[in-house]
Design a protein around this nucleic acid. Structure first.
Lengths: 246, 246
DNA sequence: CGGGGAATTGAGAGGGATCAAAAAGGGTGG
DNA sequence: CCACCCTTTTTGATCCCTCTCAATTCCCCG
């Protein structure tokens, strides 16, 4: 597997991501151990594993999850290109979460102590790590609001919009008319929204019949975003702000 | 209001918190603007407010929350002494959360740019901020698992244990036989667990009749922690690991 | 002693869960 | 190109956990 040099990292080219200084880039390059590919459905981090490496998701989708001992599973959030993975591990008393690839995935691999080296070597990169961690927490916050207080219909609408936006942001901000890639199965959606598979399906069909979304060939389109946003009681401007990359 | 010098901070004395170097302490002291007291029920951060200051919770309990436009409210997590508040604000497209004092509360106040100054001035403090942020995220993760996949009974049990542990950790790790302070009302619990007030009450009564917890004089006791843990399907060792403080 | 928030409790309704099947897709080896 | 198998999507019938609504009771405090 040929590891892309950071300087040629395809993600850096996207307007979604903030630029790096030369020093920052050099440090990241220095700390990067290798690249890793994981097949769809395979684990990137095994649940309960204490000490793990860190990753930056280069390409593909993945998800973080936790399970109860009887098998009930909750997806905590989805991971897209640019997401930094593994910071939460080991900083908690509670059992850690697992990470599984949703599509075939490519990742940059860092040793765990890269977390400290980033802070020490380039405080601005430390700040970026904090930024990414805080940002991910706010995604989880949103999910928590959904699970706690939104109806099934509202939850599905919220998830569709938020995921659409994230996927679109990686596509130069707008989709090309054919929608954005959407590799999430109904089972995944159900696990993320705290619903049963059957009811997730029924809810999805209802929204589809109302013309609120279209899913074909693994691509998602939202014909009437306004209506969906109203249903979801969502706010926040259209384009997400540029974000740091590690 | 007489601001305690950081060097005399009562929290530093607790075994729960990791020690600081002199330089770290000096930096924090330098960045600390003042101390602030907030009455129970009053806002520390108003929901939706974009740019805000940062706080360290010195004393008392508070909570983070979000609401939908029709008033439905979700508590994201509870904040106890030592928690660092406000990092997530402004790092997200989504609307920010609010923070309200649950008891009378005392806080250290920092300007927002202290976040960057901490990273720049003492990378180890930057690392601590990352640690605290990641740790808080894992608390939210746990809540998300509860809301998504646990029954009402399991949720209440989980919340009781987790809050008990956090409160006890501030009490030198063990309670003194009279239990730990527990200022959370049933309404708060309901809002945190995604349940209605009425059903939260019914569930609580059921657990109480089974002798799984006792609440008197605002103090919580868990007569049979093992049984509660079994109910909650919780794992993780007893004492939480020492944590950094800002 | 009065007043207001918090805790309790009961009756009735309903949103989602469960269980069970059938229908669609999508590879893939022959 | 077809038969076959496995995953994903749909749909129907039925059940029950939890919500809503409405009173009461309790408790703290001025």
């Amino acid at each position: 597997m040929d590891a892309t040099p950071c300087i040629d990292c395809p993600l850096r080219a996207l307007p979604l991501f903030l630029p790096h200084t030369e020093e920052e880039l050099a440090l990241v390059q220095f700390l990067k151990r290798r690249e890793l590919s994981v097949d769809a459905g395979e684990a990137v981090i095994h649940e309960g594993q204490g000490e793990t490496r860190l990753f930056t998701l280069l390409e593909g989708w993945a998800y973080r999850f936790k399970t109860l001992s009887d098998g009930r599973r909750q997806i905590l959030n989805f991971l897209l290109a640019g997401d930094f993975i593994g910071v939460q591990q080991k900083m908690s008393d509670a059992a850690a979460h697992g990470v599984v690839a949703l599509t075939p995935v490519r990742l940059c691999v860092f040793d765990r102590d890269a977390l400290w080296e980033l802070h020490r070597g380039q405080p601005s990169m430390g700040f970026n790590v904090t930024w990414l961690t805080a940002h991910e927490e706010s995604l989880v916050d949103d999910n928590l609001l959904s699970l706690g207080r939104r109806s099934a219909e509202e939850r599905v609408a919220t998830a569709l919009i938020l995921l659409y936006k994230r996927a679109a942001a990686l596509r130069h901000g707008a989709d090309d008319g054919r929608g954005v890639p959407f590799p999430v199965t109904q089972q995944h959606l159900a696990d993320a929204l705290g619903l049963s598979l059957a009811y997730t399906n029924k809810t999805l069909r209802k929204l589809e019949r109302r013309g609120l979304y279209r899913l074909a060939d693994g691509r998602l389109t939202l014909p009437d975003p306004k209506a969906l946003v109203r249903l979801a009681d969502l706010y926040g401007d259209g384009r997400p702000p540029p974000r740091p990359l590690v």
